[in-house]
Amino acid sequence: MAASRRAPRIPVAAVLALAVSPAMAASWPTAKLPEDTDSATVTKHMIYNGVEMRTQIFRSRQTTDQMLTYFRKQWGPKVVANDFEGWKILGHRDGDYYVTVQVRPEGEGSRGDIGMTLIPEKRQKIELGHGVPRPDNTVVFNDIEYPDDDTAARTLAMVNRLSPQQNSAYYISKMRSDGWTNAGDNTCAAGVAGCLLNYERGKQRMTVAITRGDNHSNIVVNLTGS
């Protein structure tokens, strides 16, 4: 079963908004699935807002209740259970990791995600968006890195009160001063709902997508290369 990379729904029991100190961690645990279940890896190593994770998706001919029973038997009594927007969620600690499965009905069977989170050794402050240019008073709410991909990648989701045209003007000036060159038309006419800017610098590529919201702009920055 093929799967495209995407940012996962973060299980409510997962450890989030913490910095990670992976040096002492053991190898990632293996998630065992029933035989009548197809699975695909979303990413083997992702850093989601400072937390190291790996995720996979699955579809099974077993029902949601059967899948929950399967994981409860596999993990034993130390299981945390939650419900979230139609998903049934189970989580437990496995050594240096927290493993979470979330599942919901699909057809006569079920589908779901498995997330593995490296538990931080200590709490640290995280600076989301570090090193990525953005206008003042821009809030970064997602900063996702894929450091082990063949081509390292990073995606940021941000919001601010500027218009798409004001944001575009900032990036056109800032990227030029930082040594980036245009990899596209990179114009944004007045009154349009959004802008798409493309830049390159050596082997690096950067795309900035800006869309108009309700009195704000949504900004998604994609960076590839190093």
Rank of each mutant, 00 (worst) to 15 (best):
H45D: 10
F84I: 13
L90C: 04
R72W: 01
E145M: 05
V51C: 03
P120H: 02
A17R: 11
C195L: 01
V139F: 15
T181I: 10
N82S: 12
T55M: 13
D65N: 05
T41G: 11
I219P: 04
D148W: 09
K203S: 15
G225S: 05
F71E: 00
T211V: 11
N182G: 13
A25W: 00
A14S: 15
N186H: 03
R104C: 02
I89F: 00
R205N: 09
R212I: 05
M53L: 13
W28L: 10
R9T: 14
P8I: 04
V159T: 11
R5F: 13
Y199P: 03
G91A: 13
G202F: 04
L118V: 08
P135S: 08
M175I: 02
Y97V: 06
R212S: 13
D143G: 11
Q56H: 14
T211D: 07
V221I: 15
E108Q: 15
T41C: 14
I126N: 12
T37M: 09
T69L: 11
A193N: 10
G109H: 08
S226L: 13
N142R: 12
M1N: 14
D38E: 15
T151K: 07
D149M: 06
N186C: 03
D83P: 01
A14T: 11
I89C: 07
